[in-house]
């Protein structure tokens, strides 16, 4: 069997598996139109030519600044990042205004003190561009105490730390003899999903998840579900989430709330985009350089192939 034959048989195998998978995936798509499903969104920063939408990042920062930052820090970012290339690109004056009210714990003063003599409170100073976007809480324990035992995570890389699963696990088929078929179908749909991810350069699972999470709060837990003092969220694993709906709950049916619903979705989208930027601040540079590098390498491959052909011309092998 020559290499071509083996390659061909491999391709056939892939197609067969892929076909089975496709059928499986199609079947799944039908049954999966429920609220717990995280949909893939169209983002300005997806794909080969993707880049951030500055206006969206600015709006997203505003949502973070007004809502999220009450509990969450972004410890890996400094304020200066907000005016750097490839981000929201606030001007220096805009940024100055934005952080005018921000304070950070002061360094020890001349007497070496970090806390006030009078009331023992932490001495603070005005924030500088180089200061980090700190959590509002002094430490983990204080954060947990203020949030009924739950720790609001730092949001610096949250969009990279979340994702959506490729293929749902299905470890219990209806009957033992069905297992091989279920298995091959699952394997096939996994291959299909990888192929789809690669062709769309899918790296936005985190942003998709955040957007879905923020827009999937229920006003009330469905009947028979007890979430205690937590909130019910359709996409959160286990549904019971400690964070109360930060931007509003999912409104169903009521015509009057269409406006509110629209705003919820818009804000959620913006803040998800902003958090994606915070996770991958060099995405713009990465993608634009990447295109040049790819074009260069494809041309070089072609040239190398021509050279190789010329050298081997007339040599039987």
């Amino acid at each position: 069997m020559s290499v071509k034959n083996t390659l061909a048989s491999f391709a056939v195998a892939l197609t067969v598996f892929g076909g089975i998978g496709m059928a499986g995936a199609a079947e799944k798509a039908g049954e999966h139109h429920d609220k717990s499903h995280v949909e893939r969104q169209n983002w300005s920063f997806s794909g080969l030519l993707g880049s951030y939408d500055k206006a969206q990042l600015k709006r997203g920062f505003a949502v973070y600044n007004e809502v999220c930052s009450a509990c969450h820090g972004m410890n890996l970012l400094s304020w200066r990042n907000l005016m750097e290339e490839g981000g929201p690109e606030f001007t220096k004056d805009e940024l100055k205004a934005l952080i005018a009210e921000k304070e950070v714990p002061a360094e020890p003063n001349e007497e070496g003190l970090t806390h006030s003599d009078e009331d023992g409170s932490r001495l603070m100073r005005a924030a500088l561009f180089t200061d980090r976007m700190l959590s509002p809480y002094a430490n983990k324990k204080a954060a947990m105490a203020a949030n009924a035992g739950a720790l609001p995570p730092d949001l610096s890389v949250i969009a990279k730390a979340r994702g959506i699963p490729h293929v749902a696990d299905n470890s219990e088929p209806s009957a033992w003899y069905a297992a091989p078929f279920v298995g091959l179908m699952e394997y096939g749909s996994w291959i299909v999903s990888v192929a789809k991810d690669v062709t769309t350069q899918y790296q936005e699972g985190g942003a998709d998840y955040i957007y879905a999470l923020l827009t999937s709060y229920a006003e009330e837990a469905p009947a028979g579900v007890d979430v205690g003092d937590r909130s019910f969220n359709y996409v959160f694993p286990g549904n019971a989430i400690s964070m109360a709906a930060p931007l509003g709950t999912l409104e169903t049916g009521a015509e009057a709330d269409k406006e509110a619903n629209k705003e919820l979705h818009a804000k959620s989208r913006d803040v998800a985009a902003y958090l994606m930027w915070a996770s991958e601040p060099h995405l713009n540079a990465r993608k634009s350089l990447g295109l040049k590098v790819l074009i260069y390498l494809i041309i070089l491959s072609g040239l190398m192939y021509a050279v190789k052909r010329t050298i081997w011309a007339g040599v039987k092998h």
Partner: peptide, 17 residues
């Protein structure tokens, strides 16, 4: 290069962030 520039985190796992 395609992976380095366009799918840089694809081979990794979100939990490692």
């Amino acid at each position: 290069a395609f992976f380095v520039f366009y799918m840089s985190n694809y081979m990794g796992h979100p939990d490692n962030f």
